[in-house]
């Protein structure tokens, strides 16, 4: 554990809590892609199957359970509790275009051809692209509420901090997880354009982010 990794995990947690609180307080999931949230729930489910097989640390176990619970709570709020506010019209990204290549890739590239390892690899690849329905939705409607952009900011910050964590781990313990690092870098690149818009529009005091 290093400071980048811890800060990254905290950013991830903050992002998820921001989104959950936004939906709960406003009693609405307008502007939120339910598809992205379903994909994230699938990411956590397929990655954290090792909760039942290996014990790493109390921190690891607790965080996994919290991420799983919060992601399912988010999906519940969007598709059940506040489903009448869900903007399915604009959440029109074709998820099969992500799932099919990701499933294919995880069968091609993995550390071991076991169900657990293939599912872990699937979760890593899927996480890299799971935000695309949300970014697509913002592009389609041309705007995002500032609270939604704060969510995306913390999610992107988490990814950037994980890269710092990998650089640190490579130099201090020789750790290098090729699958995680390559897809992590790809994932972070998706946020770069958004980061630029966030800093130039939202931070400078506009309530909504409108695309140019």
């Amino acid at each position: 554990m290093n400071v980048f990794r811890l800060a990254g995990d905290v950013s991830h947690l903050v992002a998820i809590i921001i989104l959950l609180l936004k939906i709960w307080r406003s009693r609405s999931c307008a502007g939120i892609s339910g598809k992205s949230q379903l994909l994230f729930a699938l990411v956590f489910t397929t990655r954290y199957l090792d909760l039942f097989t290996v014990y790493i640390s109390a921190y690891n176990t607790i965080m996994k359970v919290v991420f799983l619970a919060l992601s399912y709570a988010t999906v519940y709020l969007i598709y059940m509790r506040f489903r009448n506010t869900y903007d399915s019209e604009n959440d029109s990204f074709r998820v099969e275009f992500l799932l099919v290549p990701v499933i294919g890739l995880s069968f091609l590239e993995h550390y071991a051809f076991t169900p657990m390892e293939v599912l872990w690899t699937f979760s890593i690849f899927l996480e890299a692209v799971a935000i695309m329905p949300q970014l697509f939705m913002i592009t389609k409607t041309g705007e995002a509420e500032s609270i939604t952009t704060h969510y995306l900011f913390f999610l992107g910050l988490y990814r950037a901090l994980y890269i710092a964590n990998w650089v640190w781990r490579y130099h201090t313990e020789g750790f290098f997880d090729q699958i995680a690092v390559v897809s992590g870098v790809v994932q972070t690149i998706f946020y770069c354009d958004f980061f630029y818009l966030y800093v130039t529009k939202v931070v400078q005091g506009r309530s909504k982010m409108s695309l140019p």
């Binding site: 995990d9 090792d50 790493i56 550390y111 071991a112 390892e117």
Partner: peptide, 10 residues
């Protein structure tokens, strides 16, 4: 089941 890769990151 220790043959699986130990993934210690979240």
């Amino acid at each position: 089941l220790q043959d699986t890769h130990p993934h210690d990151e979240l």
